[in-house]
């Protein structure tokens, strides 16, 4: 295997992991508040199609990314209204949101399939970017990748050191106790859901504006589901989500690696690796009952309604 191939694999690993990282961070915050939103895929697709159309029509990538996030937020608000105000089942609502988002994005984007735009370019720093092996990985990515590093640091600090982060964990563990001591359960959960929507929208926008700058129906190709698996895989720990995202990113470009090595393995077989890894982690986690109850937010998936 030559140096160039390694350089490219490392570069692609981070790049492929970035949308996973962004959407998984959103989902992590959402689940920490006790809300399980399975609508990631739908929200991402809406983000992708809205971001693409806006950039195509306005020529502004920034506007595209912003409105992609707005689209994700609007989708998440549908979920929020149904599960919070009407106390509907979160799993069913999330699944419905994915189906809805898949259909709506295909409908909205049908006139834009295959049209080209100028996507977000990677940066180039003389000398640094040209370093062998790590040059492109660390210094040759696009801005959103660096934004995802910042996002990770912010979420890590938020969950582990900030007071709102403590409130978030408390609400996710026991919303009734949280309500009894006067914490704003509904507001916390809404904000968490909205953050999840914004991140899903951003990740969707990243796919259609930077990763592969075009719109195709169902272009997220299951990344929303991988992100959901990733949160479980990381046992709800921020730093593990980061590593997991890059690991899953590597897994999904493994066919390139094998090609480089001269093997031919079906890409379909390799595409299942993230899911296989998640199943293995789930088995390991649940083999120790007492640990598994301590890792997941205890009220995950339970609707909350204040009794008056």
């Amino acid at each position: 295997m030559d140096i160039d191939l390694i350089t490219n694999i490392l570069y692609a690993m981070i790049r492929t992991g970035t949308p996973l990282l962004i959407v998984a961070m959103g989902e992590l915050i959402c689940e920490k508040s006790g809300v399980l939103n399975l609508g990631q895929e739908g929200m991402m697709l809406m983000g992708a199609v809205v971001g693409f159309i806006v950039t195509l029509l306005s020529g502004s990538l920034l506007l595209g990314f912003l409105l992609a996030m707005v689209a994700g937020v609007l989708m998440s608000l549908i979920f929020g209204l149904i599960t919070m105000e009407l106390s509907a089942n979160q799993v069913a609502t999330g699944l419905a949101l994915t189906i809805f988002g898949t259909g709506l994005s295909a409908f909205v984007g049908s006139d834009f399939v295959g049209k080209p735009i100028a996507g977000l370019d990677p940066i180039h720093i003389p000398v640094l970017t040209d370093l062998p092996i790590i040059g492109r990985m660390l210094f040759g990515q696009d801005l959103v990748v660096y934004l995802s590093f910042l996002l990770f640091a912010a979420v890590y600090w938020f969950i582990n050191y900030s007071r709102p982060g403590l409130v978030l964990k408390a609400v996710g563990e026991n919303p009734h106790a949280a309500n009894a001591i006067g914490l704003p359960v509904m507001r916390t959960r809404y904000l968490a859901i909205i953050f999840g929507g914004a991140m899903a929208g951003l990740a969707g926008g990243y796919l259609s504006l930077a990763y592969t700058p075009l719109w195709a129906e169902n272009m997220t190709a299951g990344r929303g589901w991988i992100a959901l698996a990733l949160v479980v895989f990381a046992s709800w720990k921020v730093e593990r989500v980061l590593l997991g995202a890059w690991l899953f990113g590597l897994a999904s470009i493994l066919h390139l690696v094998f090609q480089g090595l001269g093997f031919s393995v079906s890409p379909n077989l390799l595409a299942m690796l993230p899911y296989l890894a998640t199943i293995v982690v789930l088995v390991i986690l649940s083999s120790n009952q007492s640990r598994s109850r301590l890792v997941a937010p205890m009220s995950l998936g339970n609707p909350f309604y204040a009794k008056s």
């Binding site: 403590l166 408390a170 009734h176 001591i181 006067g182 914490l183 205890m298």
Partner: peptide, 22 residues
């Protein structure tokens, strides 16, 4: 409360900090 309103996975200090607010 009769049924305690404590958060099992948080520490004593964190629990009390939550109730005290700002």
């Amino acid at each position: 409360f009769q049924h305690f309103s404590l958060f099992e996975t948080l520490t004593v200090t964190e629990n009390i900090a939550l109730a005290l607010g700002d």
